[in-house]
Each structure stands twice: as structure tokens, then as C-alpha cells.
């Protein structure tokens, strides 16, 4: 079982100490973030990383791999620079996710959980990612690419493979690498929080309609600070 060189180990240990400190008296809670941290260093959960987590938290390696192999975000093979996850859960699949998936596998010549030879793209089928109103959806390193089509998808992966920056629909200005993403998921902010929009169109569609129709929650009309009293207006269902 390979282990880390002294420098990497020192860095890992310092980061791990920060992660563990978030869970006073309950270090084991740090395991999920630590596995993300390992991925940020190795690009996957390496056997050495398993050993590192076990040692840091006083667990057996069996206990650590038990956790590492339970969650789908933990990779057992070196991941590409970008995970391209096509949602093929029912809704996205029907709206076109299946077609996008077929297009991408053909275009890239790889299947599920496989990586292009240049190491740029790991293709993955993902489950519903809570963006159904933007279907069909693709996640690149867990950033949203909404309302995709086969051609937008191939353009996307081509850009990724060409090393061109790609811009999520709702997310950071550009997609950072898999390892950088994993470092964020380990709980280390990367300064991109203020980039991107607050919401996409579907998120706002109800709000826009309400504004247009001047619908509000009770007692709210014309009061930017909210209702003063419970003036029942409109909202209550009228029994037929």
C-alpha cells in the first residue's frame, strides 16, 4: 500500500486537522469530508488515502472502505479532470437525457464511469440532481449545465477536452477541475461563491408570474417589508 511523500503527507495532515476540528469531540464525522480531501489530492480515493483516513481517525481500513464504497461520489479509479454526469433518471431521461447520453458515449467512445484517454473527461450517468425544472441536465464537476441537447453536450465535452473554460448555467464563472471541486467539498471555500446568478429562469417563473399578476402572500401588497396584519387576500382556497 503506497503512502504519501513527506510533503504531501504534511499538507494532508494540516488540512485534515482543520476538517477534524469542525466536529469537536466527534472526529469520525470528518470521514466524508476527509475522503473528499483525499480525492482533491489523488483524484480518487486511493488505497493510500484510505490508510490516511483510517490512521487519522483511528479506524480500521475496512471501516473506511466501507464508507468510501457506499457513496457514489467517491471514485476508485483516477478520475478525469472533469466528471461529466448526464442525468438519466426518469424525468431527464425522457426529456432527452437518454439521447444526450447516447450521443456522448458515441462521441467520446467511452461508457459509464470511464475516462477519455486524454484524462479530460470521465463520463457518468447520474441520478436526479434536483434540477428537474431545467431538464435535461448535465453536471460537470457538480456544476449545473441546464437544458442540454445532444449538440450542446458534445460542444461541452469538446471544450473540456480542448482545455477551454466552460461556463455552468448556474455556478462559478467557469468549471474548476475535479480535484479543486473536491477540495471545496472537503469544506475549503475557493472564493467563487459570488460568481454566477442567484437563480435561473425556471426557479423564478412563479415569482415572475406573481409579480405580473400582483399576487402576494396575505397582507403583503405594497409593503416591501411584508405584511403588517393577516389581511386574507386571494391565497386561501375558496371552496367551490
Amino acid at each position: 500500500m503506497a503512502s504519501y511523500d513527506a510533503q504531501t503527507l504534511a499538507r494532508l495532515e494540516a488540512d485534515a486537522a482543520q476538517v477534524v476540528a469542525r466536529y469537536p469531540e466527534h472526529p469520525r464525522s470528518a470521514l466524508l469530508p476527509l475522503l473528499h480531501l483525499v480525492q482533491s489530492v489523488d483524484g480518487y480515493v486511493s488505497p493510500a488515502g484510505i490508510g490516511f483516513c483510517a490512521q487519522t481517525l483511528g479506524l480500521s481500513t475496512a471501516e473506511v472502505s466501507a464508507v468510501a464504497t457506499f457513496y457514489t461520489q467517491y471514485k476508485r479509479h483516477p478520475n478525469g479532470t472533469y466528471t461529466v454526469g448526464v442525468c438519466t433518471n426518469t424525468l431527464c431521461a425522457v426529456m432527452g437525457g437518454d439521447a444526450i447520453w447516447a450521443e456522448l458515449t458515441e462521441h467520446l467512445g467511452i461508457g459509464n464511469d470511464e475516462t477519455t484517454e486524454d484524462g479530460a473527461v470521465t463520463l457518468e450517468r447520474v441520478e436526479c440532481n434536483a434540477a428537474c425544472d431545467y431538464a435535461p441536465v448535465i453536471m460537470v464537476n457538480w456544476e449545473f449545465f441546464d437544458n442540454q441537447t445532444p449538440s450542446s453536450a458534445t460542444a461541452l465535452v469538446d471544450a473540456l477536452r480542448a482545455g477551454e473554460p466552460v461556463h455552468p448555467t448556474r455556478g462559478a464563472d467557469r468549471v474548476v477541475s475535479f480535484r479543486e471541486t473536491e477540495r471545496v467539498l472537503a469544506g475549503f471555500a475557493d472564493g467563487h461563491a459570488n460568481e454566477g446568478p442567484g437563480a435561473g429562469e425556471p426557479t423564478l417563473v412563479g415569482l415572475r408570474l406573481a409579480a405580473e399578476k400582483r399576487w402576494t402572500a396575505p397582507g403583503e401588497a405594497g409593503e416591501p417589508d411584508g405584511p403588517a396584519g393577516a389581511r386574507k387576500r386571494g391565497a386561501k382556497r375558496e371552496e367551490a
Partner: peptide, 23 residues
């Protein structure tokens, strides 16, 4: 399956088929 998609594409190249999600 192409009839259900939100975009035009030639069905046949991409059937809904019985996929094995993630596995």
C-alpha cells in the same frame, strides 16, 4: 423515445432502452 424529448433527434441512434443506471 424521440417523441418525448424536448429537442429533435433521430431516434434509433439513441433509444431509451433498458439502461443500467450507475450500477
Amino acid at each position: 423515445p424521440a417523441a418525448a424529448a424536448l429537442f429533435e433527434y433521430a431516434s434509433g441512434s439513441a433509444t431509451g432502452g433498458a439502461g443500467t443506471v450507475g450500477a
